[in-house]
Structures are given as C-alpha cells and as structure tokens.
Design a protein around this nucleic acid. Sequence first.
DNA 1: ATTTGACAGTTCGATTTTAGAACTATAGAG
DNA 2: CTCTATAGTTCTAAAATCGAACTGTCAAAT
Lengths: 170, 170
Amino acid sequence: MKWKELEEEPCSMARTIGVIGDRWTLLILRECFLRTRRFEGFQSALGITRHLLAERLKKLVRLGILRRIPYQEAPKRHEYILTQKGLDLYPIMMALVHWGDTHMVDERGRPLLHQHRKCGKDFDPVMVCSECGEPLLAKEVHTHPGPGAQSPLTIAAPDKPKAKARRSAA
Amino acid sequence: MKWKELEEEPCSMARTIGVIGDRWTLLILRECFLRTRRFEGFQSALGITRHLLAERLKKLVRLGILRRIPYQEAPKRHEYILTQKGLDLYPIMMALVHWGDTHMVDERGRPLLHQHRKCGKDFDPVMVCSECGEPLLAKEVHTHPGPGAQSPLTIAAPDKPKAKARRSAA
DNA sequence: ATTTGACAGTTCGATTTTAGAACTATAGAG
DNA sequence: CTCTATAGTTCTAAAATCGAACTGTCAAAT
C-alpha cells in the first residue's frame, strides 16, 4: 500500500492514520500540546533529526494542523501553532496517555497528572456516548455503513474470492 | 532515538506510541476491533506484506495486546484475539475515527456510523473528565508531574544548555 | 571588523525498514 | 498425487531514517 492512498480510503480511521500515524508526528504533536512552538524547541526536546523535523512540520502545516506564524522580522522566523483542527486531536492524545497510564507505568506510578481547571481535580479521560453519556465499551458498539461507505470494514464482501488475494487497496 | 527506548520514557504517551505508534500496527488493531482474527484475514484486508504482518502480530502478542489461540490441531493453526489490554485501546481507536469523521470526510459523508446498543442511537465519542463529567478541552487541562515523573515535558529544565543540544532521550 | 552564538533550515552518505515476490510446510479434497 | 487453504519464512530491491556537517541571517560581544 502506498501511504498517500491511506488518506483517501473510505475509513476515517485509515485517513487519520495517514495524517498522524507515525511516531515522529505523534511526538511532535505531543510537544505542541505542551506549548513547544519553535524548530529548535522540537528538535532538542525530541532528538529528532533536523531533516525529518522540517519535513514533518511542513506536512502538518500543509494539512492544516499547524499554522506557521512569523514571530520576528529581523531574520525571518516563524513558530508553529496548533490550529483548531490540530487542537481537535486532543482526545486522541489523551486517549494515548491514558492507555499508557493504565498499562505501561512502572512501580513509580504516573509520570504526569492532569488537572481539570473546571472542577479542580486530577482526572482520567473517559470516552462516553454523545447521546446517552454512558461510557463506551467496544462490545456495546455496532458499526454500520454510513453515507460515505463503500467498503473496507463494511462487510465481509460476498464476492467469493477464489484465492489469489485481491484487494491491493483494502 | 532508538524506538525501544520509547517504551521506557517517563511519558505515558511516548510509551504508548512505542507500542502502537506505527501505521501497520494501528491498522492491524483496527481489523481486530472489526473481528478479524486470522493471518490471512489481516493480510488480505490490509495488503500488508506477510513478513511485516508476522512480525507485528508477534510483537502485539509479546506485549500482551493480542493472545494467540489455537483453533485447530490438524495443521496447528491459531487466531489472534484482543486481550483486555488490547480492548482497552478502544478509546484510542474511537478518537482516531472521530477526528477523521470531523476533518477528513469528503462530500459523501462518513464511511461508517457507530450505534450504541445501550441507547440505540448513532453517536459520536466524547471525551469527558472522570471527576465532573464535563467534556475536556485542551485549554482547561493543566499538566503537572506525578509520582513517576522526572522529566520530559515536566519543566523547561533550568540547566542552561550552553548550546550543543543535550538530551538524546528527551 | 571579525568572531561567536542563536535559530531555522538543507544536504548527503550510511544504516535500517519496508515492499514485493517467491518459497516452505501441513493436511484435507478430488 | 496434485490442488487448495492456511500460516508463515526468506531474499533482494527500494524507500525512509539517522547522523553529522553545512548554509544563511542577524545580533551581540570582542
């Protein structure tokens, strides 16, 4: 599969993975949410090669997840700020953190805690149903085709594959 | 940075990324949640090379995210089932899907809808605070060091770097 | 006036990963 | 005893990443 194709697959998750589904991009976004804004800041915080960092930042800007904003004219310099589209990635970040907190901590406990300003307490993120507010469990969710449907996970396609593994772009 | 190190960094998100932060692993997990269980199933649904698929499945089993269970003796064959640790990745998957639904759909609309059996309605996943139940916004969350803390995102380390970019493992 | 340092990249050879295709192995069906 | 299904393994070529050095601009220090 070509990774460019991912972004066009009829599966929202595949498309999202096409955008942010690699290690460096995810780590760069972590830094963004921790208020890092400048090239050197990302580079020294992550130890990423400058080459890749430049490339990834360009991609994130092109995709509208970061905005490149000048902060001085002298030698022209810019900083990278999350757009609303980027800020909307927050639930993904929190979900990643929470799984790590649950399954990857060592004896010392969590590296970071999160405090909710609204209520003042340290919290865990919980994913709930927008309609009834109940926490979501995989087993209680039924997936079915929507208007933009047309394949991948939709159905166990009833086209008796003789063998030969069709489907290059699943 | 060596990717093995990621799993030991004092950042739950980095650790999670070390485990599931690559394209194929994420897509394999998508298939798991869609009830794919067998090698050929993953391979033909994703078009992944058999080599990588074998390697990734092995890793997921080693990490306790999938369990390898025999389903026939004749020629010994196994299927791959999500463990509880694996099922706990569900909020991450839903968060990825939801971002894609919001920002990556084309004119035709969502490829997939999700119905909550509890309330019977098609829903969106919403991330809320475990303490007060309010939806989480990045700006309302304050991050602070926990018991297992000791660095990365914790503080702008007060150790005047002369230049030279220290910190290989941020 | 020249050097040094901060910042934001770019370039390039060496290494590591991934892609793509073929090959191995076991066993039932025809 | 050949064909097919299933689950891998092996091998070479192509692509991505690493690591380190280099470019360019400007301010401040010498």
